[in-house]
Write a protein that binds this DNA or RNA. Structure first.
Lengths: 212, 212
DNA sequence: TTTAAAAAGGGGCTTTTACCCCTTTTTAGA
DNA sequence: TCTAAAAAGGGGTAAAAGCCCCTTTTTAAA
């Protein structure tokens, strides 16, 4: 009996190609393919559709890999998630692992490593490359706490600040007094150690609050 | 006799998966796989390594798809290039086609479309989805000329403007008078139709003058 | 129900930006 | 070599941004 695998990946060509790859592995077979997290959750409502492993991409429209993995952990904890992404950013990887992924593979790996990862995840419950292991160890270190919490209203303001609008105009758009907006700005500058609006725009883009 | 295909793609997993896919097609076989354009050019020096078609990714380190396609067109014009990318931006697609690609496929397509594209490219010399065809037609239209030419010194200034520095500080760094810097700013705002520095920062990032 | 703190709004001030219009110097083309 | 451009520099001004310190209102928690 082969273990069943579901692929969740928005690029159809890649998912179909991967599907062929996995079907070629001795111990695994593809159950079906989804284009995003929402589709997966819908499919899983039928118990016949619950696989052993989900091969999950992170960057997807509609419902991304992190949200989907978290939802999966809630409702179907027995399903093992193996993350598969081009994303090498530490934060993203940690988010995915915290959401409950059992392993993290970069798309830039050999197929034999994929097969190995699937076997490990199925049989021992987890798989990590040395890269990711080192990252995990690093994340346990003292670590300067730069997890600044920005409130919803502040995030909304930041998006407006990434346009050519003046603060007065932003105030109008957000139905707030210009002075309130200036208050947001000042406290954000303080929290994030910024000097001016240019710095804020760069911060917003780096942290994906705003996408140009 | 099957037609030979070479895959040039930096993500090994995708290239291996694609390889399996193409080998499954009746009329095609994979000759070998390369991780970037440079590797391909090295390999091609041996005449046995010259394929009928190259499946080329655009975003690659070391030597990207556009450069590689241009080089290929120079030295091996008989080799047909089929571009394969996630990039949907009009400019990029046009650049690739101008470099000599015979077709452009988004990674978000069915494998049957890939097979079809390979057949078309091999037998008729080109293949384009309706999307790309429309784009081509659009690019022939009157077209508002937005190819603004920015001088080297201006580009340098823009990079500085994407920091928290004041114009006075930028002037210091560029060994120019603050008034000259303001002159740069004013003429750039004029040319690019911008209202303020925030707009300039967004423009710079969108156009890859500055990468955050 | 009291209380503390967060959110919203404001006054007054300095610096920086942005936008005029103008001169001198440098560069390159006819 | 002349000449017409860019490039570089400048003065003045109004608006916007940034930075204090302060009050009122709302929210949540004890």
């Amino acid at each position: 009996m082969k273990y069943s695998v579901v692929i969740v990946e928005d690029h159809i060509l890649l998912s179909q190609a991967l599907s062929g790859l996995v079907d070629g592995f001795a111990k695994f077979k593809i159950l079906y393919i989804c284009k995003n997290g929402k589709e997966l959750l819908t499919r899983l409502k039928d118990p016949k559709n619950i696989p052993d492993i989900v091969l999950m991409d992170i960057n997807m429209p509609i419902m991304n890999g992190i949200e989907t993995t978290a939802a999966l952990k809630e409702e179907y904890p027995q399903v093992k998630v193996l993350a598969l992404s081009v994303e090498e950013e530490e934060k993203t990887i940690l988010k995915m692992l915290r959401a409950g992924a059992k392993g993290y593979l970069l798309k830039d790996t050999e197929k034999s490593i994929l097969e190995n990862a699937l076997i490990e995840v199925q049989e021992t419950g987890f798989y990590h490359t040395t890269d990711v292991t080192n990252l995990l160890l690093g994340s346990l270190q003292p670590k300067k706490d730069n997890t600044v919490i920005l409130k919803d209203r502040e995030l909304e303001f930041i998006k407006h600040a990434c346009t050519e609008k003046t603060y007065k105009e932003i105030a109008g758009d957000m139905f707030l007094s210009p002075k309130t907006i200036e208050g947001y700005r000042d406290s954000i500058f303080e929290k994030l150690n910024l000097k001016n609006r240019t710095g804020l725009v760069i911060y917003a883009i780096k942290n994906k609050i705003f996408t140009p």
